[in-house]
Structure formats: C-alpha cells, structure tokens
Simulated scan of single mutants.
Amino acid sequence: MLGFRRFPKNVGRQYDEFLLDSIDRAKDEWDQAAETEQAISEVDGEIVAQTRLARQKYLFLYREARERNVSNNRIQSSVIDY
C-alpha cells in the first residue's frame, strides 16, 4: 500500500517496559557507584564523577517515566532525596 507501514499498537507499552528496566539498571549502577565511593578511603575525582553520572542517568530516566505517566509498582518515589 504505497510504502506505508503499519506499526504495532503495543509499541508504547514495550517502550515503557524497556524504560522501567533501564531505570532499574540505572538505580543499581548508582547504588554500586555510591557504595564504591564510600568503600574507598582515597576518593579521587574520577570516582566522584562516576557516582554523579550514575545519579544523573537515573534521574533522567525517572523524569522520562514521569513525563510519560508510566505507572507501575516498580518505581518508588522514595528513592530520590532532593
């Protein structure tokens, strides 16, 4: 039909699931980076930068999920302390 493609109707739900999985991974990376920073006695700038980057990745994905109104019991708003 003139090159028009039909997209599946559940693409949004698939993206939402992918986004939730990404949030879970980002939270784990942030927790691991924070634990590493606390465990090392001589913290250098690179370790601090990795922790900040992991936190910013998590916050970016979390905001994206909030803008898309993704609701699920997997995201806890209490994990963010401003």
Rank of each mutant, 00 (worst) to 15 (best):
F7V: 10
M1F: 09
N10G: 03
Q14P: 01
I23C: 02
R25D: 11
Q38A: 15
E67P: 03
A65V: 00
L61E: 06
Y62L: 14
S22T: 10
S78Y: 03
R74D: 10
I75R: 10
A33S: 10
S71P: 00
V70P: 03
I75P: 01
R6D: 03
E46V: 05
E35R: 11
A33I: 00
N69G: 07
E29H: 12
D28V: 14
V48Y: 03
G45I: 04
E46L: 15
N10A: 04
I23H: 02
Y82S: 05
L53N: 11
L53F: 08
A34E: 12
N10S: 13
A26E: 01
Q32H: 06
A49S: 15
R68D: 06
A54W: 00
L61G: 03
R74I: 09
N72G: 03
E42S: 11
L20E: 03
F60K: 10
Y58A: 03
D21T: 13
R25Q: 13
K9T: 14
R13C: 05
L59N: 02
R68E: 05
E67W: 10
Y82M: 11
E67Q: 10
E42A: 11
D16R: 09
P8C: 11
F4Y: 06
G12T: 08
D16E: 15
K27C: 05
R6T: 07
R5D: 02
L2T: 06
Q38G: 10
I40C: 07
M1R: 08
V48E: 15
Y15A: 15
R52I: 07
V11G: 04
V79M: 07
F18I: 13
G3K: 01
R55D: 03
S22I: 00
V70G: 07
E46Y: 13
S77I: 07
F7D: 05
A39Q: 14
E17I: 06
E67V: 09
R74C: 06
Q38L: 13
I47F: 02
G12L: 05
N69L: 10
A49F: 08
Y15R: 14
E17S: 09
E67M: 08
I75V: 13
G45R: 08
D81Y: 08
F60D: 07
K57N: 14
E35M: 09
D24W: 08
G45F: 08
R25W: 06
L2D: 07
F4P: 01
A26F: 00
R68I: 02
F18L: 14
V43Q: 07
Q38F: 08
E29G: 04
R66G: 01
R63W: 06
R52C: 07
V11A: 15
